[in-house]
Simulated assay, not measured.
Amino acid sequence: MLHPIKYILKQKNIVLASGSPRRKELLENIGLKVSICPSLFEENLDPKSFDSFSDFVEETALQKVLEVEQRLSSQGHGPDIVIGADTVVTVDDEIFGKPGNKDEAFTMLSRLSGRQHIVYTGVVIKSVDKTIKFTEKANVLFGSIDEDQIKGYIATGEPM
């Protein structure tokens, strides 16, 4: 899909508004050369003020992109393209944010165990003259895990 314009993209300063090695790897796997600049946007938007989880993740992703674009431009390093994303997990129409501590992680993982949940990822791609926003939604069936497995997983630090 990108093949016809790859030569153009290789000449662009593309910035990922995230510190996620996984997101960087995904972009590199499709042939993009990106630099990482984690957003400093304080993720404090109220999900209840949006019509849908999709609107919420797209707006959060947009704010991340705008913060990075503005910061880099003010430093004289204005990017050609900024890509940002935000992901939330929802269960029973409730957003699960990042757990603040091990107890919260335990509660969340216990609620996910053996159940289906929905993951929303909002993506924003912003160039100098255009902004594209979209959301991907995935239904995920989480396998059943027992208390020892949950504690072992939390001990890895990954849920945090």
Results as ranks from 00 to 15, higher is better:
M1Y: 15
L2N: 11
L2S: 10
H3Q: 06
P4A: 04
Y7V: 04
I8Q: 11
L9A: 14
L9D: 02
Q11I: 04
K12R: 11
N13C: 07
N13A: 10
A17H: 14
S18Y: 07
S18N: 08
G19H: 15
G19P: 13
S20A: 01
S20M: 09
R22G: 05
R23Q: 12
R23T: 13
L26C: 11
L26G: 10
E28K: 05
G31V: 07
G31L: 06
L32P: 09
L32R: 11
L32S: 05
L32G: 06
K33L: 07
V34H: 11
S35F: 05
S35C: 01
I36F: 08
I36V: 10
I36D: 00
I36G: 01
C37H: 15
P38T: 03
S39F: 12
S39P: 05
F41V: 08
N44P: 00
N44S: 09
L45N: 04
L45D: 07
L45R: 10
D46Y: 12
D46V: 14
P47F: 12
P47N: 03
F50K: 08
F53V: 06
F53K: 09
S54N: 02
D55L: 02
D55K: 02
V57I: 08
V57Y: 01
E58T: 12
E59W: 13
E59D: 15
A61M: 04
A61W: 12
L62S: 14
L62A: 09
L66H: 06
E69K: 02
E69W: 08
Q70P: 00
Q70S: 01
R71W: 13
R71N: 13
S73V: 08
S74P: 00
S74M: 15
S74K: 13
S74L: 09
S74D: 15
Q75C: 14
Q75Y: 07
H77C: 04
P79W: 01
D80V: 06
D80S: 13
I81S: 01
I81V: 14
I81C: 00
G84T: 12
G84Y: 08
D86E: 07
V88N: 03
V88T: 05
V88S: 06
V88L: 03
V89K: 01
V89E: 11
T90Q: 01
V91Y: 15
F96M: 15
F96I: 12
G97T: 08
G100Q: 11
G100L: 13
G100A: 12
E104D: 11
A105F: 10
F106K: 15
L112T: 04
G114R: 01
G114H: 02
H117P: 06
I118K: 06
I118Q: 02
V119M: 00
Y120F: 09
T121M: 10
V123K: 01
V123S: 07
K126N: 14
D129Q: 05
D129I: 04
K130Y: 06
T131A: 00
T131L: 06
I132N: 04
I132H: 06
F134N: 08
F134L: 09
E136A: 14
K137M: 11
K137Y: 05
A138I: 09
F142L: 03
G143I: 10
S144E: 14
D146R: 01
Q149Y: 00
I150G: 00
I150P: 00
K151G: 02
K151L: 12
G152S: 09
T156L: 05
T156I: 04
T156V: 09
G157K: 12
E158P: 01
M160K: 11
